[in-house]
Amino acid sequence: MLSRTSILRVVSKLLIPPIGLYALYVQFHGDFGPGGGFQAGVIFATVFILYALIFGVTNARLVAPSWLTRAMLASGVLLYAGVGVASMLMGGDFLDYSQLATDPIAGQHLGITLIEFGVGITVAGAMITIFLIFDGRIRVDDDDEDG
């Protein structure tokens, strides 16, 4: 029903790229203004859910198949923990980013950017996965009622 409404389609087509871009801005500009991995992940998931609601979940599943969202979910946590282990290997404590580069401030900056990226990936992956699972469940129920 929704996918036949042309106004919604056109408006969402106009809106989706800026929202996605904004998510990236929030992700990487979190050091200077409000923002960071948690918010960026949620906004990114919102882009995806908007796309799924307007253009149908079948199309959205082609964009982000479930193996991809699950991989996102796991790789974010791995990236975060990996940064911690890396800083340990380079001679510091767990999650002590000062060791990541020769200059402590540069190291901190690199570390924060990396772990915020990990947080963003995990949050986006989690939200999209949960949304897809709920949708998959609805679909199964509908099939049962039909058949």
């Binding site: 050091d31 203004g33 409000p34 901190q108």
Partner: peptide
């Protein structure tokens, strides 16, 4: 010590 002007980010991440 950390760098970013947003204190919330530095406390959160570092």
């Amino acid at each position: 010590e950390v760098g970013p002007p947003n204190i919330v980010t530095s406390v959160l991440a570092s």
